[in-house]
């Protein structure tokens, strides 16, 4: 009787699956151990018997042989069919994927275009909405630059004015930044590289000129004439412009505020007589954007 480890080695040796060294060891054992030799012989005969058994099992009789061709043919056809179907499906899949990618590309391109035009449109609409309905609060003002905080229906809004002749306004309404340039005669909305005229006229400039005339008490004869009247607790400045246009600014004892509408745009003006050139502040220093009188 041999142990199971040797038995396993004999099996592997029979199959030529041992390393050279293990093979030499097994051969040594077989030379010196009769039981191992007998076990190996049994293994060899068992293996031979099994091969014989499988040979017989796989030996097809005449009927099976003739049927073999028929089965091979059937399997070949089935295999060819599946390849054909896969190949057809592959082509179809390629077309589907290609079509899908094309559609997706077109969709993305279209959406981007739409988004771009919508974002310009929204920006413009946002500015116009602000012009019509929003409420502003001046938080600080320094020379050449101003900041405006607005709390409106669309959240907190920040507007910054950078001084200069062509004054640049930048705003952020919680969703996007927009800018517009205020010139002497035009207000231009900037959107990326695109610029769009919002107002052909800049009424603020006209009011500014009129008010300067009031301060100088000389009048700006060509355009506006200012007359100052004091009565009781209030001081009134009447501005007379071309085509019989008349604006009356009525300040309280402290110099303000006076609301005025010029060309459909509302302004709030505060008079600071002691400040010389700074005699007036226009709290609608964001030109073209009306301030609701009620809010003031």
């Amino acid at each position: 009787m041999i142990d199971s480890e040797l038995s396993s080695k004999l099996s592997a040796y029979l199959d030529g699956e041992l390393s050279e060294e293990d093979s030499r060891n097994v051969e040594e054992i077989l030379r010196n151990n009769a039981q191992a030799r007998a076990a190996f012989e049994d293994l060899r005969r068992t293996s031979a018997a099994m091969r014989g058994f499988y040979d017989v099992e796989n030996d097809l009789d005449e009927a099976s042989s003739s049927r073999e061709a028929e089965v091979v043919e059937r399997i070949s056809r089935a295999s060819a069919r599946v390849v054909a179907v896969r190949s057809h499906r592959g082509r179809r899949m390629f077309l589907w994927v290609g079509g899908f990618l094309l559609l997706a590309t077109l969709l993305v391109w279209g959406l981007r275009r739409l988004e771009r035009s919508r974002s310009v449109g929204e920006m413009l609409r946002g500015v116009l909405e602000l012009m019509e309905s929003d409420h502003y609060e001046l938080s600080s003002r320094t020379a050449g630059e101003s900041e405006l905080w607005q709390v409106g229906p669309r959240g907190r809004f920040h507007l910054r004015r950078v001084g200069g002749a062509g004054i640049l306004h930048e705003g952020f309404d919680g969703r996007r930044t927009w800018r517009y340039v205020e010139g002497d005669r035009k207000v231009i909305l900037l959107s990326g590289e695109a610029a769009r005229v919002v107002r052909e006229e800049n009424p603020w400039k006209r009011l500014e000129a009129a008010l300067w005339a009031a301060v100088d008490e000389e009048g700006n004869g060509e355009t506006w004439i200012a007359e100052s009247e004091s009565g009781g607790e209030r001081e009134t400045i009447v501005l007379r412009g071309p085509s019989g246009k008349r604006i009356e600014l009525s300040f309280d004892a402290e110099g303000g505020p006076a609301a005025v509408t010029l060309d459909g745009v509302a302004y709030v003006v505060t008079r600071r007589p002691a400040l010389g050139d700074e005699a007036f502040t226009w709290e609608t220093w964001a030109p073209g954007i009306p301030v609701e009188e009620a809010a003031r």
């Binding site: 097809l60 073999e68 089965v71 091979v72 043919e73 399997i75 070949s76 295999s79 060819a80 390849v83």
Partner: peptide
């Protein structure tokens, strides 16, 4: 490489391994 249009290739391969 067996092409669905060429049954012989399928037949040969299946035949080689059928048994």
């Amino acid at each position: 490489q067996a092409d669905p249009g060429d049954q012989n290739a399928f037949r040969e391969l299946v035949g080689r391994h059928f048994r």
